[in-house]
Amino acid sequence: MSIPVVTSAVEAAVAACDLEVAYDDGRVGLTQVNFALAPGQVLGVIGPNGSGKSTLLKATAGLLRVSSGTLLVFGREPADLAPGSVAYVPQIEAVDWHFPATVRDIVSMGRFPKIGRLRRFSARDRALVDQALEAVELLNLADRTIGLLSGGQQQRAFLARALAQEPAIYLLDEPTTGVDAATEENLLHLVRTLAGNGKPVMMSTHDLERARDWFDRLLVLDTHQVLEGTTSDVLATHPGLAHSHAHGHPKP
C-alpha cells in the first residue's frame, strides 16, 4: 500500500482498505470493500437484502470482526475507540418495544457511555436529552410509554438517543424503512444538519429516489463492493440503480 493512502486513512473519518468481515461462525459477510469517508460527508450504503449493508455498519460500530484488510474510524480500529464515540442506530425491529420505559428513558441511555455506572445526571446531561428530543420533535411525547409509539416515532426516539450520545460518527441502519413522510423529512433535515456540523454519517437504505438530497457519496454492495463514488457519479454510471432499488422490499 502506498504512503498517501495511509495518510488519507488517518485523516478520513472512516477508511476501509481491502476490508473483509466475517461472522462468528466464520462465514464471510462482506469482502473487497475500499472507501474513505471524510468528516461532514453522508455515505449512502445501498444494495439488495443480504448484500452486507448492515454487516458494514456493524463492523464499523465494532460489533463484527474485521477478518482481513483494515477498517479505521478516525485512524483507530473500532474496538479501540472511546465508549460512545460511535452512535449505532439499529433498525427498530431490533428491540422489544413493550419494554417498560418512557421515550425520555430511552433517550437518556445515550448519556450512559459518558457518565458511567454511578454518576448522577448533571444539568447538562438533562439538557442534552431535552435538545435531542426537541431535534426529533418528540419533546411533547417525552413521558409517553415507548410501546405506544408509531414506527416513525420509534425511529426518531432511536435517533434522539444517538444525538444525546454526542458521538463522533453516526451509523444509521435503514432509518427510512417503514416510516411516515413527516419522519422522513425530519430525518433528512437532521442528517444534513449533522453533516453540516462536520459529523460523518453512514446510512444504509433501500430508497434511492431522493439519493441526491440525502447522500454525498454512495457505496453499492452485493457482498462485495460493486461501486463507490460521489452520488452523481454513481447514479450517472448506473442510471437504473435508483429505479431497481427504490422498490426493494424492506427486511422482515
Partner: peptide
C-alpha cells in the same frame, strides 16, 4: 435488557 447491541457499542 432493552437494547443489547447498542449497549455493547456504548462500552457496556
Amino acid at each position: 435488557s432493552f437494547d443489547p447491541v447498542v449497549a455493547q457499542t456504548s462500552g457496556i
